[in-house]
Design a protein around this nucleic acid. Structure first.
Length: 612
RNA sequence: GCGGGCAUAGCUCAACUGGAUAGAGCGUCAGACUACGAAUCUGAAGGUUUGGGGUUCGACUCCCUAUGCCCGCACCA
C-alpha cells in the first residue's frame, strides 16, 4: 500500500530522472514539468534575438488569472518603460519571435503589453499523459535541489512538559517544509532540537527529590513532572534559599552528578516516549534528536573561537558579541556565556550551527520557531556568518522560518503558565472524535472499525490542514471549531474529493492505481478544460511553496483543484456509454487523484481512505 | 525609550512578493439529490484593502505619516 510515509524517504533521483526523460521521448518534447520556466526560457531567447538580452530584459513569466490565460509574461512593460519604448509594440515583436510555441499555446497580447499564453487542449493532454503518478511528478520536480543536503530543526519541545497547541505549528509547518524540500530533490535531515538542558531542571530535580508522588508518576508521568516543576518554581519564588538549592542541583547535573543525571534521564525518557505518540499521529519521523544536552561539551570551542577571532568580548562578567554595523545589535548584546560561566540558548545554538555545518555538511539550515525569537536568530546568524568567515568554514544557507503565535480568546499568546493550556493530545483526540461523529452520521452502515479508521485520518488531517492552509506569518486565535472544521477550505473537503474519485473507479470496475488510459483524448467541455488547466499548475504551486518556505501556497492550489474537480463532477458525468468521453474523463479523475494525494502527502497528511 | 510584526467583506482567511475587474469559506438569501456519494454543486448580496500623503504605465503589496493591537530588547528558551 502506498501511504503518506513514501515521500519521507529520499527518492533515487537519478533513476527517476532517467525515467522522466524516457517519458518525454515517448510523448512530447515541448512540455516539461514546469511550463512556466520553459516559457521563461523561450521568451528570454526571443528577447535575445531582438538584442534585448544585454540591456537587462527579464521575461517575468508568472501564472495568470485563468480568464486571461495560463501564464503571462510581463517583462515588456518594465523594459519598455526603462528604454522609453512603446510596450505594446515591443511585446508584439517578442510574440513574433515565439512562432515555435504556436503548436502548444494560444499566444495573445493584452492591455499595455501583457503577453498571454494559453495551453491548447492537446498540450494539456500531453502534460497529463507524462505526469501520471506521484513518482513522475516528483521526478519532474527533483532537479531543483538535486545533490543538496538540508537540515530542518522543528518541533523542538522542552522535556518534562507536555506539548500544547502552541507546539503544533512548528511540528506541522516543519514537516511540510521537509517534504517539500525532499520533493525538490534535496536530502533532508529532520532534527528535533529538544530542550533537555535548560535551567528548568534545577527546580525540577529539587522538587523531584522532595515531593515526588510515586503513584502519580506511575499513572501519568508528564502530569507529575509538570506538578513538580510548578511546586519547585513556586517554592523558589517564595524562598531564596530554595532557589539557591535548585541552582546547585543544576550545577551538580551539569557537572555529571550520578544521582541527578539518573533523574534527568528518567524525565527525558518518559517525555520522549510521550512526544513520540504525537509524532506518530502526525506522521513525523525524525532522523536526529540532538537536544541541547548534546551540545554541552561543544560550547567551549565556541567560546574559544569567538574569543580568538575577536568577535566575542567580556561584558559585565558575561561573554557577549556586539555587531557594530547594526543599528540595534551594536548596543544590544548577544550573550553567549552567562556571567556565572554557564551556557545558554545562544551558546548551544552556535555550537549547533557549527555541528550541522561540519558533521552533516549541510547546504542549508532551517529553524522553525515562532516569530518572538526573530531577534535571537538575527543575532545568531550575524554571528555565525562572521565566525565562519573568520575561521574559513563553509557557510550554509541560514533560514529562520517564523510563524505567528497561537493566541487565546483574549488575543494574548497561550503560555504554559496560564491555566487555559490546550494539550496537543487533547486537540487531536477531540478532532478525531468529532470526525467520528460525522462519519457515523453520514455512513451508519460502515463497519465500526472503518469509521474509526476514517476518523483518525480526517481528524488529524483537519488539524494539520487548519495550520497549513493559512499564511504562517499571521497569528491566530485558537478556536476549536476553526481547528477541526469539516466544511469549506478544510482537509475534509480535499479528502472528500479523493473518496469520490476512488468511488468512481470502483463503480467503473477499474483499479484507481493503474487504470488503462493510454488512448484518452484531449479535454473538451469547459469543465474538463478548466480542470486540466488547474492540474497543470501543480509545479508552480510546489515551487512557490518550496522557495518561499510557505506551504499554504500548495494548500491553496489543492483546494482550488478540488473545487475544479467538484464543479466538473457536477457538470460532466464520467461513467457514460460513449467510450471516448468516458476515457478522457477517467483520465482527468485519475490525474486529479494523483495530484491531490501527492499534494496532501507533501503537506504531511494521510490520504489512505477508500471512502468517507 | 529603541526596534520588529500585524491591520483586507459581519466573522475566519487568500491575493503567486509591483500586474489586468481584490478572491474563497462560514454566516445570510434563492435554487439543485428517481444523478458516478448533497461532507457537494449553481447563483445573489456583502469592500474607500485602518486614516492621510507619496513613488509610477500600474499599489493590498514599496516609501513617509497618524492610529490601534501583538511581540522583542543583559544573562529564559
Amino acid at each position: 500500500m502506498r501511504t503518506y510515509t513514501d515521500l519521507s524517504q529520499p527518492q533515487p533521483a537519478k533513476i527517476l530522472l532517467a525515467q522522466s526523460q524516457a517519458q518525454f521521448l515517448n510523448h512530447v518534447m515541448s512540455l516539461p514539468f514546469n511550463v512556466a520556466s520553459h516559457l521563461d526560457t523561450a521568451v528570454r531567447a526571443a528577447a535575445a534575438k531582438l538584442g534585448l538580452a544585454d540591456r537587462g530584459f527579464q521575461p517575468e513569466v508568472r501564472v495568470a488569472d485563468p480568464a486571461n490565460g495560463d501564464y503571462q509574461a510581463n517583462g515588456a512593460l518594465a523594459f519598455a518603460k526603462r528604454e522609453k519604448q512603446n510596450p505594446r509594440a515591443l511585446a508584439q515583436q517578442i510574440v513574433d519571435e515565439l512562432g515555435g510555441l504556436q503548436a502548444d499555446y494560444d499566444i495573445s497580447l493584452a492591455g499595455p503589453g501583457f503577453i498571454n499564453f494559453r495551453l491548447k487542449p492537446a498540450a494539456l493532454l500531453a502534460w497529463l499523459q507524462t505526469y501520471d503518478s506521484e513518482e513522475h511528478l516528483q521526478s519532474g520536480a527533483a532537479s531543483a535541489r538535486h545533490g543538496q543536503t538540508w537540515i530542518v530543526d522543528y518541533s523542538s519541545p522542552n522535556t518534562a512538559k507536555q506539548m500544547h497547541v502552541g507546539h503544533l505549528r512548528s511540528a506541522v509547518i516543519g514537516e511540510a517544509i521537509c517534504r517539500l524540500l525532499t520533493f525538490s530533490g534535496a536530502k533532508v535531515i529532520r532534527d528535533n532540537h529538544i530542550g533537555d538542558w535548560g535551567t528548568q531542571f534545577g527546580k525540577l530535580i529539587w522538587a523531584y527529590k522532595r515531593h515526588l508522588d510515586p503513584a502519580a508518576l506511575d499513572a501519568d508521568p508528564l502530569e507529575e513532572f509538570e506538578r513538580l516543576y510548578k511546586a519547585g518554581n513556586s517554592a523558589a519564588e517564595a524562598d531564596p534559599a530554595v532557589l539557591t538549592e535548585a541552582q546547585q542541583e543544576l550545577v551538580k547535573l551539569q557537572a555529571g552528578d550520578a544521582a541527578n543525571l539518573a533523574v534527568w534521564k528518567t524525565i527525558n525518557d518518559v517525555s520522549l516516549a510521550a512526544f513520540q505518540e504525537i509524532y506518530d499521529r502526525l506522521g513525523i519521523k525524525f532522523d536526529a534528536m540532538l537536544g541541547e544536552s548534546f551540545y554541552n561539551d561543544k560550547v567551549d570551542r565556541v567560546y574559544r573561537e569567538l574569543t580568538g577571532t575577536g568577535l566575542a568580548q567580556p561584558s559585565e562578567g558575561a561573554l557577549v558579541v556586539f555587531h557594530p554595523e547594526h543599528p540595534r545589535f551594536a548596543q544590544q548584546p548577544f550573550i553567549i556565556r552567562k556571567s556565572d560561566g554557564a551556557a545558554n540558548y545562544a551558546s548551544s545554538d552556535l555550537a549547533t550551527a557549527l555541528y550541522r555545518a561540519e558533521h552533516f555538511k549541510v547546504d542549508g539550515i532551517i529553524v522553525v520557531t515562532d516569530f518572538r525569537q526573530a531577534d535571537h536568530f538575527e543575532q545568531l546568524y550575524l554571528t555565525v556568518r562572521k565566525w565562519f568567515a573568520a575561521e574559513n568554514y563553509r557557510l550554509p544557507e541560514l533560514h529562520h522560518v517564523t510563524f505567528g503565535s497561537v493566541n487565546g480568546e483574549d488575543g494574548k499568546a497561550l503560555k504554559t503558565r496560564d491555566g487555559g493550556i490546550i494539550r496537543l493530545k487533547a486537540l487531536l483526540d477531540e478532532a478525531t472524535e468529532r470526525s467520528y461523529q460525522l462519519v457515523s452520521s453520514k455512513n451508519p452502515d460502515f463497519p465500526e472499525a472503518e469509521r474509526r479508521a476514517i476518523a483518525d485520518i480526517v481528524g488529524v488531517a483537519s488539524v494539520q490542514y487548519a495550520d497549513l492552509s493559512q499564511n504562517r506569518s499571521s497569528d491566530y486565535v485558537f478556536a476549536w471549531d476553526k481547528m477541526i472544521s469539516l466544511e469549506g477550505n478544510t482537509a475534509a473537503y480535499l479528502l472528500y474529493a479523493v473518496a469520490r474519485i476512488r468511488s468512481i473507479f470502483r463503480k467503473a470496475g477499474l483499479d484507481a492505481a493503474m487504470p488503462p488510459l493510454a488512448d484518452a483524448t484531449a479535454p473538451e467541455t469547459p469543465q474538463e478544460i478548466a480542470l486540466a488547466r488547474k492540474l497543470g499548475k501543480f509545479p508552480d504551486a510546489v515551487q512557490l511553496a518550496t522557495n518561499t518556505l510557505r506551504p499554504h501556497f500548495l494548500s491553496l492550489h489543492l483546494y482550488e483543484l478540488a473545487g475544479e474537480f467538484s464543479t466538473f463532477y457536477a457538470a460532466d458525468k464520467v461513467i457514460v456509454d460513449d467510450p471516448a468521453v468516458r476515457a478522457r474523463r477517467l483520465l482527468l479523475c485519475h490525474r486529479t487523484l494523483v495530484e491531490l494525494e501527492a499534494g496532501l502527502h507533501l503537506l504531511g497528511l494521510r490520504t489512505d481512505l477508500e471512502r468517507m
